[in-house]
Amino acid sequence: MKQPDNSKKQMKILAVYLAVLFILAAADFFIHKHTETSLEGLPLFYVIFSIITGAAMVVMALTLRLFFSRDERYYE
């Protein structure tokens, strides 16, 4: 019996995901934002914000791991 090609399926999902990301980024230029702060009114603000936030959190997590990581039997 032929196994389903997982990598092809994954590539399809990834392509759809990328298309959604692109549409979301493009939508920023067409939608009127009613924002309280001037920063949020900038196009692609939340696109850039999310990526930077994600990266910053990972950096902070790695830093935390460096200093606060212990063996799981530490308290025993």
Partner: peptide
């Protein structure tokens, strides 16, 4: 459910998820 809010939240969530996928 306003267009700006839906798009904004989807950007926050899906671009955040993109970082996870890359990692």
């Amino acid at each position: 459910y306003t267009a700006a809010h839906i798009v904004g939240q989807l950007q926050v969530v899906l671009y955040g998820a993109a970082v996870f996928i890359l990692l």
